[in-house]
Amino acid sequence: MIDLIKVSKAYPPDVQAIADVSLTVTRGEIVFLTGMSGAGKTTLLRLISRMEKPTKGMVDVAGMDVIKLPQSSIHLLRRKVGMAYQDFKLLPERTVADNIAIAMEVVYRPRSFIEKRTRELLELLDLTRKYNTRAGELSRGEQQRVSIARAVANGPEIVLADEPTGNLDAETTARVMALFEQLHRKGATLIIATHDRSLFEDTPHRVIELRFGRVLSRSEAGKDDGPAPFEAPPALFEETGA
C-alpha cells in the first residue's frame, strides 16, 4: 500500500530531516511511528501525502508514484489519504460541522449524507454539543478531535495521524484510538506518528522508531487476530457509503 525506498529529505541550508528511509506498509496494517521531536515523523507523513517531495528516493502510495504525480492529479492521492495534522489545519471562523464537511464536499457527497456523517463522527468523539461552535472557540483537545474527524470522514484507504492524542486526556485518547481501530477493521491502513508510548506499549502492531531522520528500530507486528486493545463503541461506522 505504501512503499518508501531509500527516501531522503533535506531542507536548506543543511537540515537532513529524513535520510535513506525504506519502509513498506501493507494494506490494512497499523504502523506506529515514534521518536523524539525532530526525528522526522511529520516529514515522513508529509512525504506520503505529497505535501513535500523527497530530495531523493521513491515514494509509492496506493499504486501512485507520488514524486511523479502531476499537480493536476494530486487530488486522486489526497482522496485516498486522510490526514490528521499536528497543527490541526482547521478554519477558525467556520463551525465544527463545516470543518468536517469540507472533506466530504470536495468529493460531492450529498448534503444529507454530509450532515448525518458529521453528527455520527461528532458523537463518536464526544463533540456533539459543538456542532455549531466555531472551531476557533474550541480547546486544543477539541480541535484535535475535529481534525481527526475530518481526516476519517470519507473513510479513506489510508489514514495518517500526526500526534493524534497529543492534547487529549486518557478517556478521549481511548475514544480516538477506538475510532482508528474501527477504521482498521474496515480495511484502512493507518500510520500513527506519536511519542506517546502508552499508545503502542502493548500493541500487536508494528512500531518503527525514528531518530535523526533514520530508522532506529522496528518491532515486528504481532498476530492481529485478537480483540483490539481499545474498545470501540458499538455501531461506530455503519454502512453509510463512505
Binding site: Q71, H75, R78, R79, I102, A103, V106, V107, R150
Partner: peptide
C-alpha cells in the same frame, strides 16, 4: 487562503 490550502489537502480538484 487558509481554506484554499485546506481544500487542496483534502482532495479538491483544481477546477473545484
Amino acid at each position: 487562503q487558509q481554506e484554499l490550502e485546506l481544500l487542496r489537502l483534502v482532495g479538491a480538484t483544481d477546477n473545484y
